[in-house]
């Protein structure tokens, strides 16, 4: 499907649960409420006409002004050759969301990465641990207000003059 046709189709499929961005530059995306996050992803992945079976990229962005973290999933379909970007926003303090790992196994590691770098935890995730940083690391580096510790296990984190 072309991207316009896909947008129309998804609008029909999901009804009033969709919110489209329509930006001036760059990609268009769909925002959904975090309660519907898992169900909508499930629908889009299994629906015959969408068949978005490939999770291309899954990440988060921190927006401290809005006190929210935005999760962005880029999905794609090899058979139909179309892609869709789905987003949701969750609060910064609580920072929990449902896992997508049952829908796309690729999400297992992407969610571990988001947990590690942004501090978002996922309900029912099979293996939620830090992935890139060491287990005893303090803080979540990709949050905008992240401050580094002065030493890590005795190694200074700035170069002495």
């Amino acid at each position: 499907m072309t991207s316009e046709a896909l947008i129309d189709y998804v609008k029909g499929l999901l009804g009033d649960k969709t919110k489209w961005a329509d930006p001036e530059a760059g990609d268009n995306f769909l925002t959904v409420a975090s309660e519907d996050w898992k169900n909508i992803c499930q629908t889009l992945a299994t629906d015959k006409k969408c068949s978005l079976t490939y999770l291309r990229n899954f990440t988060g962005t921190d927006y401290p002004e809005d006190d929210e973290i935005e999760l962005t999933a880029h999905t794609f379909s090899y058979s139909e050759k179309h892609g869709l970007i789905i987003k949701t926003r969750i609060s910064r303090e609580a920072a929990v969301c449902d896992t997508l790992s049952k829908i796309w196994p690729a999400a297992i590691w992407y969610e571990r990465e988001i947990f590690d770098l942004l501090g978002v935890s996922f309900n029912n995730h099979p293996d939620l641990r830090r992935i890139l940083m060491p287990e005893d690391w303090v803080g979540h580096p990709l949050r905008k207000d992240y401050k580094q510790q002065e030493t890590y296990r005795g190694i200074p984190t700035t170069r002495p003059a």
Binding site: P23, E24, A25, G26, D27, R56, N57
Partner: peptide
């Protein structure tokens, strides 16, 4: 200075 927006390129 790109305009406000986002893009995925591969």
């Amino acid at each position: 200075k790109p305009p406000k927006g986002e893009v995925y390129s591969c």
